[in-house]
């Protein structure tokens, strides 16, 4: 809205290119690799195996998969111009608060809207696969989120910029240099707006994206609550201690 305070177009173009390139370099799977036709959908026998797993075993499997995905998000963040210039406290705050949200955003690349399945453990899996976790109230919104985001049919560049915008949220608690994060997020927002405009997107898509930003926050709040209640609580301290990835504990512990 205020052209005078906007960063120069060159800066924005450079940032946009940098973020899109970083996204492609760190997206874990290429879009072609994720084609549902390349992978099996979970069959009844597999489904039984997943559903018969103990809650602990299923949480452990998910913790490992989430941690793998988060490591790519950390790498994504590191390559975004400006992120490594933030103080280390803020880098950690942003990653702790936002890395899971970016994993959820990236999930739309691995979601098959034909049968409401998502790529998990080298197969396309429906929500029933996660039943043993014992938290349908978390799984349903995650699938709903993937469905909503997929329906926008975002390009890879749009997903990259949207992910960066979510990650650089200046409203996270405990940031020490909030203004620096705000400036970076604002630049990413303008870059995303420019890209959407260039791609001749309907103006409504921006509104839809903001709603989804809010939604990712809600999912994470729900995620953390459930994790605290079922996994990192006193229920399975031994499992968490010995079998959960250390990075997972750092990210979601407290």
């Amino acid at each position: 809205s205020n052209r005078d305070s906007s960063p120069p177009d060159n800066d924005l173009e450079h940032l946009s290119e940098n973020i899109c390139k970083s996204h492609m370099e760190t997206c874990q799977y290429l879009r072609e690799e994720l084609q549902p036709s390349n992978w099996q959908t979970v069959l009844q026998t597999d489904l039984d195996t997943y559903q018969k797993k103990s809650q602990e075993d299923m949480w452990q499997l998910c913790a490992v998969k989430v941690t793998e995905a988060v490591q790519y998000v950390v790498e994504f963040a590191k390559r975004i111009d400006g992120f490594m210039e933030l103080c280390q406290n803020d880098q950690i705050v942003l990653l702790k608060a936002g890395s899971l949200e970016v994993v959820f955003v990236r999930m739309c690349r691995a979601y098959n809207s034909q049968n409401n399945t998502v790529f998990f453990d080298s197969k396309y899996a429906g929500s029933e696969v996660f039943k043993a976790l014992g938290c349908d109230d978390l799984i349903s919104p995650v699938f709903e989120f993937a469905k909503s985001l997929t329906s926008l049919q975002l390009s890879e560049d749009e997903i990259g910029l949207f992910s960066a915008y979510v990650l650089m949220s200046a409203d996270r608690s405990w940031l020490q240099e909030k203004t620096r994060v705000e400036k970076l997020q604002q630049k990413i927002k303008i870059a995303l707006q420019n890209l959407l405009q260039k791609n001749q997107r309907d103006e409504g898509i921006l509104f839809h994206l903001w709603i989804l930003v809010i939604f990712t926050h809600l999912i994470t709040v729900s995620q953390v609550k459930i994790l605290l209640r079922t996994v990192l609580s006193a229920l399975y301290p031994e499992t968490v201690h010995t079998r959960f990835p250390p990075l997972y504990k750092e990210l979601f512990g407290s």
Binding site: E25, Q71, V74, Q91, K96, E250, L251
Partner: peptide, 20 residues
């Protein structure tokens, strides 16, 4: 720092996704 030592390490490493 001790509380987030893995994150610190990841942030300091010049790792690439293939190393992950």
């Amino acid at each position: 720092k001790e509380k987030h030592k893995i994150l610190h390490r990841l942030l300091q490493n010049s790792s690439s996704p293939v190393d992950l």
